[in-house]
Design a protein around this nucleic acid. Structure first.
Length: 904
RNA sequence: GCGGUCUUAGCUCAGUUGGUUAGAGCGUCACGUUGACAUCGUGAAGGCCAGUGGUUCGAGUCCACUAGACCGCACCA
C-alpha cells in the first residue's frame, strides 16, 4: 500500500472532499424513468428558516442508510429533497428583522413589497439547512430539490384548492377558531398546544332585574369576557335555579340585561351551577348560543384588545383588562369569591401566547370523506407503521377527525385562489378570468381575490405529488416520475407530525392519485437530554450537530445516533451544559478509529508480504484454516443479519451486528489469530493468500457498513484497493449472502478454542501472573475436542500467553501446583506452584456452588412429570443435555477440590 | 376522561414468536504500551428484570391490578 496511514483516523480531512467527489461523479442522481428495480424516499422538507438539529441528524441518517443500502443492492434509489416555506416561521422572522432594522411593520410596506422582502430573505439566508445536511453525507438527488413556494408546487396547490372547492370538500364558514393575537391569524387545532395553568376562578354577582338584592353567582376565569355575555345558563333540572329561568340578570359593570336560560350542557355540580354564555369567545358557549338562537357579541378584537362593547375598557389588552376589571368588580362589590384554579389553556405552538377563541370567517376542508379511505389503508396493512403501535394513535385521530381550518391571515404562503364578485358570490379559480367565466360574469366585471393565504401544511400534504411534478403547470396529471417512483417505499419522520403531515399525505395521495404515497412509515425516536427533556433551542440543551460533526466526524455522529436510537423509544443524549459537547459521540469515533487501525494493520501486512491492489488469487477452501473458515462464516451470518434487521427496521440491531462483527470477531479474534498464522506459515505464497483473504473479508464488511458510515468506508476501500478514482463504494454492490459459508460446526470449534484461551487467561489472572510469564499448561481431553485443541495448541499458546500446552489423557492426574478450569467437555491446567492454591480453592468452591444450583434447577425441571409431558421434545432434550453437562462439570470440580486437599 | 409508551447492572440501553447459565457500551477495580489501535488490550466486580397477583410444565417476555415516569387526543365555566 502506498498511502501513509496516520495512527489515528482524522475524519475532517476526508469527509468534505469525498462528498464533493460523489457529487462530481453524479452518483445520487436518478433518471425520471427506469426499467430497473427502484427505491424511493421523500425527505420531510425542513423549514426554509431551519438549522440542523439532532432530530434532523437522526431522521436523515436513517433515510440515507436506506437509500444507500438499496442503491448498493443495485436499485435506482431516488431520494427527493426539498424545503418548506414555513408560512408562520418565515413571515415572523422577516417581520422581526424589518422591525429591528427599519422600525416598520408589514403593513407599512404593503403586501407586494413585503413578499418581495421575504423572497429576498429566502434567497440570502434560506435553506442553509440543506447545505448543512450535506456535511452529514446525505445522498439525495439534489437536482430534484423542491421548494413548496416554487411555481410548479404553487400551481398544484391552486389546482387542488379549486378541485376540492368544486367537489364541495372545501367550504367557507363563520366559526369559532383558534386565533393567535400575536400572529393575527387563525390556527388549526393541531397548531394549538395545551398546558396546565394556575389561574384564579372568580365568582361574580349577576343581579336580577329589578331593584332587589337578589343575584345569581357565576364563576369564570375570564372576567374580561363579560361584555360579550348574552345569557346565563343553568341546568334545567337544577332546583336552586329553576324558578329563575326566563328572568333576566344584569351583566356586571354594565346596564345590559341578559336572559337566564336552561341548557343541559351546564354541570350543576361545578362552580355555582351557573354558566355565563359568551358565544364569541368560547366554542362551547357558541354551541349553546346556536341552540338558543342567541346573538354573537364580540368584545375582543383580532389584536387581543377589548373593543367598544367593553365601554370604558375599550382598547385595553385582554390580560391587562382582566386585572382592571377584577379590581373594579371588587370595588363595586360584585366579586363574591376568588380561588386558585388549575386548568388547561391552549397556546399558539409557534408564537407562544394563549390562543383566543375567535369568531370569524375561515376556510375549511371537510375531512370525513378523506379520512375514511386513509384509515382503511393503514388498518389493512397497505401502509405499515413502524413501530406498529402508532396505528392506534392514527386510528383514534382519524375516527374523531374534525374539519381542517386552512386559511391563515398571513401574507407569506399560497394565496387562496378565491374570487368574490360585487354581488357577494364567489368561486375558486385559476385566475380572475377563469373566475368570471365560472360565475357567468362579463369580462370586465370587478372581482376581489381573497386576502388570506393557505396553511403551510396545505402544500406539504401534496409533497409526494409536487416533488414528482404533478400539475407542475396546473394541468399535467401524469409524469414519468410519478409512474416510476410513486408509491415511495419509505417515509421517515417524527411521530409528532403524524396528523399534520403523514395522515394528510395519505388522504391527498389516495384522493388525487388513487394510490398510497408510501409503503412503510418509520417513526423515529424523540431525542431528549439526560434529564428527559426534549431538545430545544430555547432550553439550550441541544448540541450543535455541526460542531459534533467537526469534532467527531460525520460517520461517528451517524453511528452513535443510530446506535443509541432503538425503534420507537426516546433516546437520551447527555450534553455538557457548558461546552454543548456530547461525549457519547466517542462511541462512534472510537469505532471509526478501530476500523481505521484494522485497515492500517492490513496495509502493513500487505506491504510486508508484497500484496498489492489485486485480490486474486484467493486461497482455495483447502488452504483455509479454522480461523479463516470461522471469520468467513461470521461474515456471512452478518450479511444475513444486516438484511434481516434492515428489512424489519431494527436499526440499532443492524448497528450492533456490524459493531460486534468488526470489533469482536474481526479485530479481537481474527486479526490476533492472523498475526500468529502469518508467523507460522513458511511459504510466502500462503502468507500472501492469507492477506488477500483477510483484505477481502474486510472489504466485504466495509460494504455492509457503508450505508451507515459512508466516508470512512469509502476512504478505506480506496486505500486498501488502490481503486480507480471514478469508482465508488457508494455504487458497488453489497456482498451476497452465501449460506454454504455459514458453518455451525466451525463456529462451535472456534467457540471452544476461544473459550480455552479465555480460561487460560483467567487462570493466569487468578494467579496474578504477568502477561510475560509463560506458565506450563496442559489440557485433559479426549475425542474430537482433544484433536482440535492439539491441532491449535500453538494458537492457544500465543493468544493466552502460556507455554505450548500438552495434551494429557482423561485419566491422568491433575498436575501438582496447577490451577484448573473447565472448557466444554475438557479441562485446562496451568502450573503455577502451591502459593495460589488457597485462591484456587475459593474459586472452585464458588464454581461448585454455582453448578450445584444450576444442576438442582435442571433436575427439578426434569423431575416434573408435567414438564416432560407438555414441553416440546427439543426443550426436554436440551434440559437433559444440560443436566449431563452440569453433572460432568461438577464432578470435575469436585475432583479438583479433592486433589487440592490432598496436596495440602 | 379516552388512547398509547416506558420501568432490566452505578449510568444509557439491548433482550424477536414464552424455553440454554439475562447481554452490550460507558463508568468502576486490577494488570498491561519494543509497532494496527491507550480513541487500545486482558481479566474482574456489579442484576429478586418496579411491585403484587394470575395464565403456563416453564414468565424479563403473556394477562390483570398497583406505584412511578412520559406522550397523544378530548376537556367544566
Amino acid at each position: 500500500m502506498q498511502r501513509q496511514f496516520d495512527r489515528h483516523y482524522n475524519p475532517s480531512a476526508i469527509e468534505r472532499p469525498w462528498y464533493e467527489h460523489w457529487l462530481e461523479l453524479d452518483l445520487f442522481s436518478c433518471p425520471d424513468s427506469t426499467d430497473q428495480p427502484r427505491y424511493s424516499i421523500l425527505m420531510p422538507p425542513p423549514n426554509v428558516t431551519g438549522v440542523l438539529t439532532m432530530g434532523h441528524v437522526l431522521n436523515n441518517t436513517i433515510q440515507d442508510l436506506y437509500i444507500r443500502y438499496h442503491r448498493k443492492l443495485g436499485k435506482v434509489a431516488c431520494w427527493f429533497p426539498g424545503l418548506d416555506h414555513a408560512g408562520i416561521a418565515t413571515q415572523s422572522k422577516v417581520e422581526a428583522e424589518l422591525l429591528r432594522t427599519e422600525g416598520k411593520t408589514r403593513w407599512d410596506l404593503g403586501r407586494e413589497e413585503f413578499l418581495r422582502r421575504v423572497w429576498q430573505w429566502k434567497e440570502q439566508y434560506g435553506g442553509i439547512i440543506l447545505e448543512q445536511l450535506r456535511s452529514l453525507g446525505v445522498s439525495c438527488d439534489w437536482k430534484r430539490t423542491l421548494f413548496t413556494m416554487d411555481e410548479s408546487a404553487s400551481n398544484a396547490v391552486r389546482e387542488v384548492f379549486i378541485r376540492l372547492f368544486d367537489a364541495g370538500l372545501i367550504y367557507r364558514g363563520k366559526r369559532i377558531i383558534n386565533w393567535s393575537p400575536v400572529l393575527q391569524s387563525a390556527l388549526s387545532d393541531e397548531e394549538v398546544v395545551y398546558r396546565q395553568v394556575e389561574d384564579t376562578l372568580y365568582t361574580l354577582k349577576y343581579q336580577l332585574e329589578g331593584d332587589g338584592d337578589e343575584f345569581v353567582a357565576v364563576a369564570t376565569v375570564r372576567p374580561e369576557t363579560i361584555f360579550g355575555d348574552v345569557a346565563v345558563a343553568v341546568h334545567p333540572e337544577d332546583e336552586r335555579y329553576r324558578h329563575l329561568i326566563g328572568k333576566k340578570v344584569r351583566v356586571p359593570l354594565t346596564d345590559r340585561l341578559v336572559p337566564i336560560i336552561a341548557d343541559s350542557y351546564v354541570d350543576p355540580t361545578f362552580g355555582t351551577g351557573c354558566l355565563k354564555i359568551t358565544p364569541a369567545h368560547d366554542p362551547n358557549d357558541f354551541e349553546i348560543g346556536v341552540r338558543h338562537s342567541l346573538p354573537v357579541l364580540a368584545s375582543i378584537n383580532a389584536d387581543g384588545r377589548l373593543n367598544h362593547v367593553a365601554g370604558p375598557y375599550e382598547g385595553m389588552e385582554r390580560f391587562a383588562a382582566r386585572t382592571q376589571i377584577v379590581a373594579d368588580l371588587r370595588a363595586a362589590g360584585l366579586l363574591v369569591n376568588e380561588q386558585p384554579y388549575v386548568h388547561n389553556v391552549g397556546f399558539s405552538e409557534r408564537s407562544g401566547e394563549p390562543v383566543e377563541p375567535f369568531y370569524s370567517d375561515q376556510w375549511f376542508v371537510r375531512m370525513q370523506p378523506l379520512a375514511e379511505p386513509a384509515l382503511q389503508v393503514v388498518l389493512d396493512g397497505t401502509i405499515r407503521f413502524f413501530p406498529e403501535h402508532w396505528t392506534k394513535t392514527y386510528e383514534h385521530w382519524m375516527r374523531n377527525i374534525r374539519d381542517w381550518c386552512i386559511s391563515r391571515q398571513l401574507w407569506w404562503g399560497h394565496r387562496i385562489p378565491v374570487y368574490y364578485a360585487a354581488d357577494g358570490r364567489y368561486t375558486a379559480a385559476r385566475s380572475a378570468e377563469h373566475a368570471r367565466e365560472k360565475l357567468g360574469l362579463s369580462p370586465t366585471a370587478e372581482l376581489r381575490q381573497d386576502e388570506d393565504s393557505l396553511d403551510t401544511w396545505f402544500s406539504s400534504w401534496l409533497w409526494m405529488l409536487t416533488t414528482m411534478r404533478w400539475l407542475h403547470d396546473g394541468k399535467t396529471e401524469d409524469t414519468p416520475i410519478l409512474r416510476t417512483y410513486l408509491p415511495t417505499d419509505l417515509l421517515v419522520t417524527g411521530p409528532d407530525i403524524i396528523f399534520f403531515w403523514v395522515a394528510r399525505m395519505i388522504m391527498a395521495s389516495l384522493y388525487f392519485r388513487g394510490v398510497v404515497p408510501f409503503r412503510d412509515v418509520y417513526f423515529t425516536s424523540i431525542i431528549r437530554d439526560d434529564k428527559g427533556r426534549k431538545m430545544s433551542k430555547s432550553l439550550g440543551n441541544s448540541p450543535d450537530p455541526l460542531k459534533l460533526i467537526a469534532t467527531y466526524g460525520a460517520d461517528a455522529v451517524r453511528y452513535t445516533v443510530l446506535y443509541l436510537a432503538p425503534v420507537g423509544q426516546d433516546v437520551r443524549i447527555t450534553v455538557d451544559p457548558v461546552t454543548q459537547d456530547a461525549p457519547q459521540m466517542e462511541l462512534g469515533r472510537n469505532f471509526a478509529n478501530k476500523l481505521w487501525n484494522a485497515a492500517r494493520f492490513l496495509a502493513l501486512k500487505a506491504d510486508e508480504v508484497g500484496v498489492g491492489a489485486d485480490r486474486t488469487p484467493q486461497p482455495t477452501d483447502d488452504e483455509l484454516g479454522l480461523p479463516e473458515r470461522w471469520i468467513r462464516s461470521r461474515l456471512h451470518a452478518t450479511i444475513r443479519l444486516v438484511d434481516e434487521h434492515l428489512e424489519r427496521y431494527r436499526i440499532n440491531d443492524y448497528v450492533r451486528t456490524l459493531y460486534d462483527f468488526f470489533w469482536h470477531d474481526y479485530c479481537d479474534w481474527y486479526i490476533e489469530l492472523l498475526k500468529i498464522r502469518l508467523q507460522q506459515l513458511e511459504s510466502l505464497q500462503q502468507r500472501q493468500g492469507l492477506v488477500r483473504f483477510s483484505l477481502q473479508v474486510f472489504e466485504d464488511a466495509l460494504g455492509l457498513l457503508h450505508p451507515l458510515m459512508p466516508f470512512i468506508t469509502e476512504e478505506l476501500w480506496h486505500r486498501l484497493g488502490l481503486r480507480e478514482p471514478d469508482r465508488s463504494l457508494c455504487t458497488e454492490l453489497l456482498p451476497k449472502h452465501n449460506p454454504h459459508f455459514e458453518l455451525p460446526h466451525v463456529e462451535q470449534q472456534m467457540a471452544l478454542l476461544m473459550n480455552a484461551i479465555e480460561q487460560f487467561r483467567m487462570l493466569k489472572a487468578t494467579a496474578n501472573l504477568k502477561p510475560t510469564d509463560l506458565p506450563p499448561a496442559s489440557f485433559r481431553a479426549d475425542g474430537s475436542t482433544a484433536e482440535m485443541l492439539r491441532a491449535n495448541a500453538p494458537l492457544i499458546a500465543a493468544l493466552a500467553r502460556i507455554e505450548l500446552p500438552t495434551l494429557v489423557d482423561t485419566n491422568a492426574q491433575k498436575p501438582r501446583g496447577a490451577l484448573s478450569a473447565i472448557v466444554g467437555d475438557a479441562e485446562v491446567f496451568i502450573v503455577v506452584g502451591d502459593h495460589v492454591l488457597q485462591r484456587e480453592r475459593e474459586r472452585l468452591l464458588a464454581e461448585r456452588a454455582r453448578l450445584e444450583h444450576l444442576l438442582a434447577q435442571t433436575r427439578a425441571r426434569l423431575a416434573n412429570e408435567q414438564f416432560l409431558q407438555r414441553a416440546k421434545p427439543d426443550v426436554v432434550e436440551n434440559e437433559r443435555a444440560k443436566e449431563a453437562t452440569f453433572a460432568e462439570a461438577l464432578e470435575k470440580i469436585n475432583a479438583s477440590l479433592h486433589h487440592l486437599m490432598e496436596q495440602q
